[in-house]
Structure formats: C-alpha cells, structure tokens
Design a protein around this nucleic acid. Structure first.
Length: 879
RNA sequence: GGGCGGUUAGCUCAGCUGGUUAGAGCGCCACAUUGACAUUGUGGAGGUCGGUGGUUCGAGUCCACUAUCGCCCACCA
C-alpha cells in the first residue's frame, strides 16, 4: 500500500480527474433509449467574460443536479454554451479600440471590419470562460456545446422571426423607445437602471399656470397642459380649451387643456405640460388624446431647429441658457437646487437614456395567435397559463407573484437594436416593398440595418440548442428541459422571455402543450454578497472574492460547498474566505477518513457484508446510513441542496468519523467501514466531485468504474436495526456525560473508583446512571479520566464489561429524583391529553390527511409508553 | 405608492406542512495529542428566535399589528 499524504492537495488531482471524466464520454447522455432523459441547459455565460461568483454558484448547483441524476441512472444532458451578449460585447470591443487610439471605430472601420474585430475577440476569449467552467468541475457535455450567435442559432432566430412576422406578431411601428445616445441604440425597459441624481427643479409661469420641470430643454414643443379631471383648482378650465397666446421661451405660444387621470394632484402644482416625443408617460397621454408629437432632441442628444437659437446645442449646454432666458422674461418663479430624482441609464452601457419616438420592430404581446389548450391565446395569456396551471414551477414559489406582476405590466417588446454585433433583422426593403427571409430576395433588395435584441435569440436557448427547427432526436428526447437554474435577477430578462419564445415556437411546430415549454422547473438562486452584505465589487478588493483565486487556494470542492451550503433559493448569501477554508477542512477530513479505512483494508477484507458478524456498532451505523441516504435523496429531489449537503456532512464527520471510526480502533469490521465510506462518497460526489472521485480511485482501483457513474445508494431495508441504534445512541449520551465530567472535575487520580454502568433495559435508569456518575464525581469519589476511557472502550466493544458498585442509597437524593420524574409525568399527561383531544375532534379526524393522523397516533403511543416507563421508575424510586 | 424578503449565539447562516431540551460553521475558553486527520480531538461558555397581541394542549414556525434593514415594480411633470 502506497503512503498517502496527510493532507489532500486538490491541485494534484483536479485537472487529471476532469480530463479523465471528459475523455470517458460520460458527460454525454447515455444513448440507451430505455434510460429516462434528464436535461439542464446551462445559462450561457458571456463569451467575453470571466468566471465570477454568480457563474460559480450557478455551475455548482447545476452540477449537483446533473451528477445526482446521472448517478440515479438518468440519461443526463447538461448542455454548455456561451452568449454573444450583443451590446455588452460590442461596447467592450469599441472601448478597447478607442483605448488603442481609434476615435470612432464604427466610422473608421465600417460594419464588416468591426464585426470581424469582434468575432476575433470573441473567439479568443471564449476559451477563457470555457476553461473556467471546466475548473469548477462542471460535468457538462462539451460535444454539444452551443453559442448563441452560431450559424445554426442564426437560422433558428430567422425562422422564429419569420413565423412571428407571418402571424403579425412582429410589427414595425413608431413607438417611444429608450434611446441610449452614447451607444446609439435602443434599450429594453428591463435593461434600464435608475440612478439617483441631484438636479435643479424649476417652476415656470406657463400662461395662467405654474409648471414644474427638471428638463427645461424639452419644453419647446409643449403645447398641451394637462391636469386631473377632479382637481378643483382647475375646474374652471375645460377639456380641449385653448389658452393663450402667452409668452414662452421663443415668443408667444398657445396651449390646449387636457384632463387626464394620470396626473398626480399632490405633485407640484398639479399641472404639467407634456413632451410626448421624449417621455413615456407623456407619450401615453398623447396617444390617449390623439395629440401631436414633436421631436425636440435628436439621436445625438442635440436640440433640433424647433429650439430656435438653441438648436444644435447639447442638452447640458442648452439647459442653463434656456433657464436664463426664461428668467429674464420673468417667467422663472423658483428654483430648487436640491431636487433628487431618478435618471434612467442603460444597464449595459451606463449611458443616460433619452426617450425617443423611433421606427422600431416590436413583438405584440396581446395578439391572440397561439393555439393553446383549445383556445387562441396571446403571449401574455400563455405566459400566465403555464405558471398558473403548474406546468412550470418556480422555486421558491413566492416568485410566482413577481412573475405575474411583471406580465401584467408587460408592454410590446421592442426587439430592434441599432448596434452591429448581433442577429441581423431578416427583413429586406426595395422601393417601399418589404420582404422577410433569411436570404436576399434578389437584386436591389437592402437588408434592415438593425440587429435583434440579444434576448430575442437567447429566448430560444433550451430548444434551438437541440436542433430546432429540425426535429432532431435530441430535440424530441430532451425537450422540455427539467430545470432551469439561474439567478433571480434575470427572471424577467430571460426566464420569462424563454417561456414566451418557446411556447410560441414549439406550439407552432406541432408540439403538444406539455412539450412546448422550455423547462418544467425554475430554480432561482440568490446573489452572492460580500461579508458586509454589499455587492461584490472590484473597487473593494479586500472583500471581493474571485472564485478562481479561491480554487487555486482551497480547491474546487471547497468553493463549491461554500457556495451551496448555507444558501436557500431566492435569498442572497454572504461569502467570505473563512467559510471556504472551513469546507476545505471538510475535504481534508474526508481524505483522512478514507486514509484510515484504507489502512485497515487488506486482501482478506470481504467484498460483501456478512450480517451474522455485525456488532451493535455496525448495526447502528448501517441503520443511520439508511436514514441518511433517504433523507439526502429526498432533499436533493426537492431542491434543498444546502440541507442535503449538511445531512451528509454531519453524518460523515459527526457520526462516522467521530464515533464509528473511533470504535473501529477497538473492534473493527473493515467491510462495514468500507461500505459506509463508499456510500458517503457517492452521496457527497455531486457536491464535491474531485476529492470523492480521487478516493474512489484508491479504494476501487478499477479504471472503468468511475464514481461519477456509480449507482446512487439505496437504503437497505434488511439492515434497519432500530433497537440497537437506540441503545448505541444512549450509550453515546452516557459517554458524552462522562467526558464532560472528566473535563470538569479535578479528582485525585489515586482515588480510583470504577464506575459501573449495569446492564439494564430501562432507559430511565440508564439516564439515572449518568446522574449517579455525575454525583460521584462531585463527591470526589470517581476518577473520571479512567472511567471515561473504560466506558468508551465498553462502547467500542459493546460487551458491557464495566464493573459496577452500588451505594445508590447513599448517593441519590431520592426526593429530588422523584420530583423530577413526577414533573415529567405531569408534562407527559398534559401532552397526551392534548393529542387525545385533537384526535377526538371530529373536524380534525375527518379532514386531516392520513399521514398526519398516523403521525399523531404514533406520537400518542410513544408518549404513553414513555409515561408507563416513568411511572414504573417512580415506583422504583419510591421503594 | 404597490409588492417581496430578512431580523435566531460574538460573526455568517440553517431550521421542510406547529411537536420533547432551538442547531451548524467560524470565533472564544479549558483540556488533550507519538499511528487517519492540528486543515485534529474532547468538553465548555454564549440565544427570553426584532417587539406587542392572538390562535393552540403546545409557536422560531400560523394570524394581526408594529419596528428596522434590504430588494423588486411603478411614478418622479
């Protein structure tokens, strides 16, 4: 037997083991059609990114599920991929080119050359993230790796676009959109972030009204004044009434009175003017009343000719001058310099967003075109139905509400983007004619310049990766996927959109409803925060944790555990280095537990367990193992990853190592020792694949029987020894008591008294014995250092060879003991009375589920027998 | 304004449909240690589960109110 190092060094194993797994081909699903399929589609990280803790968490949880299911015998597909991340990638590359000295890369390079630059960049950096995903031990099928901007994906995107266009679900229209002047593109509602900003808030005299604004530069085109229909202050003004002329920025103007309930009477003066071209609310008011919409600011953020002398100026330049002019005219009533309000910025580019009306492509979310459960439903209605009907379950379920609320507020989805990096809109124009299709319809046709929102392609992720629109064997086998695991922060961005795109596309492709969903379950993990509860940020390097550094320092298994244990779905979790170090210690504990077992194995160790030679300790640990297997399996199946991990962790460290292995030093059964270790390795493998596989290799040796594809353990019902288990646990309690006494007392070593624990079936007396020993110690009559050892030995051999002496009457305060037992009896009687009352309640007896009823009954029985024991103990004590 | 979550040991967090004495890791204190493991072992200290009230035989768990921190959505003229 080779000498194994005392500490487990992850670096010596991880790379080689991963290579071995990957080369074995077992990351790919078993092609055997009789095997039940199980599939997880990895949310694709950005092709240009590096692995952060969000990815690491995602990969850890997904890999636990994949490995668990694979060991359970499912044909498990865990499909990896990367995302082209349209706007994020384009802005990164442009920024890089600018840093290299290019002033305006888009102008200087032109479309094709810039795209080539981005393509090269992506190709180059894709490998980084790929290797980092491997470093996490992720057991995904690299032979099926996909990319959201591959030719196949492009084909799927075009197909979907064409289908939706044909159904008139996609339309082109003038709508207000979020325009990012910095990136020169539209941004989706969900991609906006709001940052608080302090700016001046002005109140101007506008005809007979006072209006407030923080944006005077938009006010040129305002010819409408709006107030709430119920506002008594303005009851004298009639809806549609013309006011004016009166003096305004560039001379006299007229205004129309509009009454609309969107106005908040409490805010400011309760009156406002509207700028429909540059404000979403204003746009909606204008739509409702069919008002004229005038553009004031152009796409570069400059004022248009309507601004007169201010035309051509940038917003920040024009604003003070306009205020100055109005002040000179005496129309500025007040200025609040400390007005706090939220400014919309692009989630990606961080540029300030300027609402604009532009010609864009939209997806209609209200048009009923999907054939669903015998009705024609709209996208919105299908989105609601799949979650409402339970076809898709969200874990934790409180996110249902948030999801439904989002749908209620969902407006038509603007899918066109004015950037170059992305799926180009498959629409062609010629002399006012429009055609939709993947390739040019012929001579003279010009393709739409815009590209599609990145989420338009990623919504197809779960099924286009399997070959759609072709009906490939993979598509037929693995759709819908079993679970989508992701952070709750992209529930709207992506999860909801996937449901949207998938239900539509697959239903239209002839799939039945239950197969036309992207996934059956959604598991949402929380965000990882630093020790202070703040978002991890590179500006705080002292608390910011890089998963790759941690892998380097503590090993992948440790970081995986630290990201999973202590976390609950949908809740954020704090991470700090000490926690990772703690799990590194557990990894090492397993290594050393295994080392001990290996030292105790030899060629004579039988392969099979022989129940006829089971000691009580063997029976105990096997019974406990059964319980742990069942508990951990259930917890894994119900997405309680943290609990499942803790279950096995506690068992392995607290019971197997601390007690069973210790007992084995006195009296061992190597076959059982090995058996329990092997099952623990299996149970722990999904959480910590490397150390478990490394040990498996050492214990099993055979190169073809990897732990990764070993069969998930099952409880062996023939080995449930409840009585022995209870007994062992009682003795463990006594030993603990002894240990504590040994630590507490300073008994003179010369006074040696052998404590005696006599074999008696009665539980109450056994506990009383511990008490006796305690009192002996207090009287200085007992050398606990010796006694403790003896008891431990007795536990180990379980022969009950400890001697006893019995000056009971001298040592026990019978009165006090009697009082204690009497009190216990009283409590038990009260408890039993309670259960009986509950059971005799007809409402409870009729309505409660059978399991609950049985549970209550067994509790009742248990308490009754306990009561009996206490009563007999009481009579003993009374004698 | 609407919604959601957190509040449990010094710190970070578990605690599944209510059930005996509320748990873990880290930290702290004491002791141990030559053969699995100091990345260790044993023992200990430390909690009126944010507050008030209610339902119940029984509440960390359910209900109402409340305090406080955080998040999401909408609005911000």
């Amino acid at each position: 037997m080779q000498e194994l190092p005392k500490t487990f060094s992850p670096k010596d194993f991880e790379e080689a083991l991963y290579k071995k797994w990957e080369e074995s081909g077992s990351f790919a699903p078993d092609p055997d059609p009789s095997k039940k399929p199980y599939s997880i589609m990895m949310p694709p990280p950005n092709a240009t990114g590096t692995l952060h803790l969000g990815h690491a968490t995602m990969l850890a949880i997904e890999d636990i599920m994949a490995r668990f299911k694979r060991m359970q015998g499912f044909a498990t597909l865990y499909l990896p991929g990367t995302d082209h991340a349209a706007i994020a990638t384009e802005s990164v590359v442009i920024k890089k080119l600018q840093e290299e000295g290019m002033r305006n890369p888009k102008e200087e390079l032109g479309r094709e050359a810039l795209l080539q630059k981005i393509r090269d960049f992506v190709e180059n950096s894709k490998n980084t993230i790929r290797n980092q995903v491997r470093k996490m031990g992720t057991s995904c099928d690299w032979s099926r790796e996909r990319y959201t901007f591959s030719d196949e994906m492009n084909h799927a995107v075009n197909e979907l676009f064409t289908m939706m266009y044909t159904d008139r679900l996609i339309y082109r229209g003038d709508r207000i959109v979020n325009w990012d002047p910095k990136m020169q593109t539209t941004v989706a509602d969900d991609e906006l972030e709001y940052v608080e900003e302090k700016s001046a808030f002005y109140t101007f005299q506008y005809g007979p009204f006072q209006i407030g604004t923080s944006r005077p530069e938009t006010k040129f085109g305002d010819k409408v004044v709006v107030m709430h229909p119920n506002d008594p202050r303005y009851a004298q003004y009639k809806h549609g009434e013309e006011i004016g002329p009166f003096e305004w920025i560039n001379g006299p103007t007229m205004a129309t009175v509009i009454k609309d309930e969107a106005i908040d009477m409490e805010f400011g003066t309760g009156v406002m003017t509207i700028t429909p071209w540059h404000d979403t609310t204003d746009f909606e008011i204008a739509e409702r009343h069919k008002l004229e919409k005038i553009q004031v600011i152009d796409e570069q953020g400059r004022l248009l000719p309507i601004a007169g002398e201010f035309a051509g100026m940038k917003i920040h330049e024009a604003r003070p001058k306009i205020v100055e002019k109005l002040a000179a005219k005496g129309l500025l009533l007040s200025t609040d310099e400390n007005y706090m309000h939220n400014v919309a910025v692009s989630y990606r580019g961080k540029g300030k967003v300027e609402p604009q009306i532009m010609k864009q492509w939209f997806v209609d979310v209200n048009k009923a075109v999907i054939d669903w459960k015998g009705k024609q439903l709209s996208i919105k209605e299908v989105l609601q139905d799949v979650v409402h009907s339970g076809m898709i379950k969200i874990v934790p379920d409180r996110f249902d509400k948030i999801y439904f609320h989002w749908i209620d507020n969902l407006r038509d989805w603007c899918i066109s983007r004015q950037i170059w990096w992305g799926h180009r809109i498959p629409v062609w124009y010629k002399e006012g004619e429009v055609k939709v299709g993947e390739t040019s319809p012929g001579e003279g046709w010009i393709q739409d310049e815009d590209t599609l929102d990145t989420w338009f392609s990623s919504q197809l992720w779960t099924f286009s990766t399997l070959g759609w629109p072709e009906k490939t064997p993979d598509l037929m086998r693995f759709t819908p996927s079993d679970v989508l695991e992701t952070g709750y922060d992209i529930l709207f961005f992506w999860v909801a959109r996937m449901i949207l795109g998938t239900t539509y596309a697959l239903r239209k492709s002839g799939f039945p409803e239950e197969k036309s969903i992207p996934f059956k379950n959604v598991y949402l993990h929380g965000l990882i925060r630093d020790i202070r509860g703040k978002k991890m940020s590179k500006s705080h390097p002292e608390t910011c944790i890089d998963p790759l550094d941690m892998i380097e320092k503590y090993g992948t298994d440790a970081i995986r555990l630290s990201l999973v244990i202590g976390g609950t779905p949908g809740n954020d979790m704090r991470l700090y280095e000490e926690k990772i170090a703690g799990f590194r210690n557990f990894v090492n504990k397993i290594w050393n537990g295994a080392r001990f077992v290996l030292m105790n194995l030899d060629e004579n160790t039988p392969q099979d367990l022989d129940p006829s030679i089971f000691s009580r300790a063997d029976k105990w640990i096997l019974t406990r193992l059964n319980e742990i297997i069942e508990k951990a399996t259930t917890q894994l199946e119900t997405y309680q990853f943290s609990e499942a991990g803790m279950t096995v962790y506690d068992f392995f460290w607290g019971e197997y190592c601390d007690w069973y292995v210790e007992m084995s030093k006195v009296n061992k059964n190597p076959a059982v020792l090995k058996h329990v270790l092997k099952d623990c390795l299996k149970l722990l493998h999904p959480f910590m694949p490397f150390v478990t596989e490394a040990i498996w290799e050492l214990t099993e040796g055979a190169p073809n029987k990897m732990l990764m594809i070993a069969e998930w353990p099952k409880a062996n019902l023939a080995w449930n020894f409840e009585e022995e288990t209870e007994e062992v646990q009682r003795v463990m309690e006594v030993v603990s008591t002894l240990r504590s006494l040994r630590a507490e007392s300073n008994v003179d070593a010369t006074k040696k008294i052998h404590a005696i624990i006599y074999a008696h079936e009665d539980l109450g007396l056994l506990q009383a014995k511990a008490e006796i020993i305690k009192r002996l110690a207090n009287l200085g009559e007992l050398d606990l250092s010796e006694t403790g050892e003896k008891v431990e030995k007795s536990l180990a051999t379980f022969v009950g060879d400890i001697e006893i002496f019995l000056p009971l009457a001298d040592l026990i305060d019978f009165d006090q003991e009697r009082k204690r037992v009497e009190k216990e009896i009283q409590e038990l009687e009260k408890y039993i009375e309670g259960i009986e009352r509950k059971l005799s309640n007809p409402a409870f007896a009729q309505n409660a589920p059978k399991e609950i009823l049985d549970k209550e009954k067994s509790k009742l029985e248990e308490s009754k027998s306990k009561l009996e024991k206490n009563k007999s103990q009481l009579t003993t004590l009374t004698k």
